[in-house]
């Protein structure tokens, strides 16, 4: 019982962190059709900036979080304008290579600038320790991560389903050429959603630093995980991404608890099974 409960809490927290980071990837992938392997690198930049702000400059956790999110967006804008612009609509292989190249460069430069060590982000006292539920206690930062995930999911749902921007975004996802013909400035939609996606990646990188430690090869280590989540969920679908994150987070966490010697064997086995059964992802639409 105890084990089941710990697995459930850890899986939920892990799944939510995965969700916060990869939902941006899912939206941009559905929108711009870019296989973006560099998404994890933006989460890593967020983690590095927050670590620098909180640990080396002694700022508060909340301020460090804000600096990380906006700093990462600032870094990402020139990358989008100079590099991503050129691969919209290119073959997948080209996109994979370009984004792997960007990832390598970001890793190299980040480690040159900040040193090749594990970056910790000190938690404020409010998030340290644990909350006692009477029969079991949960680490507070895990609850914080879960709440962040829920907040992001709600906010995104509101943004996409209830606002004028959301209407334009959905129109551009469904048929970019038609949306442009009807007067939607698709390039602005692209730019805004790219910025939101990068900001969310940075947020996830900072909030999830306890579960996915920020280290020099972070971008490479989790690149595959984020891509897998998006593919399993179906690109461009928020509910699909949420289900995929919880499902894969659950499988991965349960695998680590119950059969640690197998590593990620079951995670990848599940991925192959799901992708073979649902080639377009759990919530993918036929095109």
């Amino acid at each position: 019982m105890q084990t089941v409960f710990s697995i459930a809490v850890d899986a939920l927290a892990y799944g939510m962190v995965l969700f916060v980071i990869s939902i941006g990837l899912s939206v941009t992938m559905g929108l711009m059709r870019v296989v973006n392997l560099a998404h994890g690198a933006f989460a890593m930049i967020g983690g590095y900036i927050a670590s620098y702000a909180a640990r080396d400059m002694g700022l508060g956790y909340g301020i460090a979080l804000m600096i990380a999110v906006f700093g990462t967006i600032l870094v990402a804008i020139p990358i989008e304008r100079l590099l991503y612009r050129r691969i919209y609509g290119a073959p997948e292989l080209t996109q994979v290579l370009m984004t792997i190249g960007i990832t390598f460069c970001i890793i190299g430069i980040a480690n040159y600038a900040f040193g090749p060590t594990l970056k910790t982000i000190p938690l404020p006292t409010g998030l340290q320790g644990s909350v006692d539920l009477g029969f079991r206690s949960i680490a507070t930062h895990r609850i914080f991560a879960i709440l962040c995930g829920l907040a992001v999911a709600t906010a995104l749902w509101y943004l996409i389903e209830k606002t004028a921007f959301g209407v334009k975004l959905r129109a551009a996802v469904d048929d970019a050429a038609m949306a442009a013909a009807l007067g939607v400035r698709t390039e602005i939609v692209y730019a805004v959603s790219f910025a939101v996606a990068v900001g969310l990646a940075a947020l996830g990188g900072v909030v999830g630093a306890e579960l996915l430690p920020v280290e020099p090869y972070y971008a490479l280590r989790y690149m595959v995980t984020f891509l897998v989540v998006v593919s399993v969920g179906g690109a461009g679908s928020i509910p699909g991404a949420l289900v995929a994150c919880l499902l894969l987070g659950g499988i991965d966490t349960a695998g680590r608890y119950l059969v640690p010697e197998f590593g990620e064997f079951f995670f990848y086995l599940a991925v192959i099974a799901i992708v073979c059964v649902f080639p377009r992802g759990l919530a993918g639409r036929t095109r």
């Binding site: 994979v96 891509l227 998006v230 593919s231 590593g263 192959i272 080639p279």
Partner: peptide
């Protein structure tokens, strides 16, 4: 079995599976 992104993901999952095995 798949094309495009799912194909890439399948190949990545396969290499990790072989590695773990």
């Amino acid at each position: 079995r798949a094309h495009g992104l799912p194909q890439l993901v399948l190949s990545i999952a396969l290499i990790h599976l072989f590695h773990e095995f």
